[in-house]
């Protein structure tokens, strides 16, 4: 009972925090330099991980689709099926989970560390709005970086699929990419990519909330880091269900 109460209270805190993030991201001053720096940290530095995973996921997916489609003599559908799987769900979700692992833990630990070593107090004492400077910039960077990384993941995935496929069937590069994208419609491509901004918001807000409010020294920092990953992954997966439903609602056509 007490646990439930605490959980609800915690969740309320998170919601208020999220509201504060939204409010603050639209009011000046805007920490542009910090945002760029965070995009560098969160986006650019995640790119190798995302590209590598994309290549791996794409080639594995391609191999699986091949073994399934082969039975029906539908090998020519492999690029299409792969692009469908990647662009509509696998790409956004895998990117989301990878980013929540890498970036979520990073934000949780970094802000947690800054909190317990009084660096956040120090920022405040230097007349810097630490919320804007640390939290808003990271959330905004996550929101911006997620769709970009998802695009990277999608293309790396299709490329990985191409590599796996070309080994077996010697398919040509341009043909593969053209087929991959030819059966998609805009409603298969744009909404799932855009929805990852929400993933970015979830990852940024949850981990920043945990880090920014960390207590309890080094142990607390560790806790903030792990919880950031765990909770942002869970929220992301749950929220994805709602988002997919929501996208179906907006674009009934994308359901097939």
């Amino acid at each position: 009972m007490e646990n439930a109460e605490r959980a609800i209270e915690w969740f309320g805190g998170l919601s208020l925090f999220a509201g504060q993030v939204i409010r603050n991201s639209f009011s000046p001053p805007f920490e542009f330099t910090e945002i760029l720096k965070q995009i560098f940290e969160i986006g650019w530095r995640s790119a190798p991980l995302i590209i590598l995973s994309g290549l791996a996921v794409g080639s594995v997916l391609s191999m699986h689709t091949r073994s399934t489609l082969e039975r029906f003599g539908a090998e020519s559908m492999i690029p299409t099926a792969l692009a469908f799987a990647l662009v509509k769900e696998t790409g956004p979700l895998v990117t989301g989970l990878l980013v929540s692992g890498r970036v979520g833990a990073g934000i949780g630990a970094e802000l947690g560390g800054m909190r317990v070593t009084e660096q956040i107090d120090a920022l405040e004492s230097l007349a810097v709005n630490s919320f804007k400077y640390l939290v808003v910039t990271r959330v905004v960077a996550c929101v911006v970086a997620m769709p970009l990384l998802t695009v990277l993941m999608n293309f790396a995935g299709v490329l990985g699929g191409f590599f796996a496929e070309t080994l077996v069937s010697g398919s040509s590069f341009t043909f593969y990419f053209n087929t991959a994208f030819s059966s998609l419609s805009f409603s298969d491509y744009i909404p799932p990519t855009i929805k990852t901004t929400v993933f970015g918001f979830i990852i940024g807000t949850t981990s920043a909330f945990l880090g920014y409010n960390a207590t309890g020294g080094a142990e607390g920092v560790g806790r903030a880091a792990t919880q950031s990953v765990v909770l942002s992954s869970i929220f992301l997966i749950v929220c994805n269900v709602l988002l997919v439903k929501f996208i179906f609602f907006l674009y009934p056509g994308s359901g097939s």
Binding site: G113, M114, T117, E118, Q119, D121, A122, L123, S125
Partner: peptide
């Protein structure tokens, strides 16, 4: 106001 924290609180 200038503030020297007990832990120095340098941005690491």
């Amino acid at each position: 106001i200038g503030f020297l924290f007990q832990s120095a609180a340098l941005f690491d």
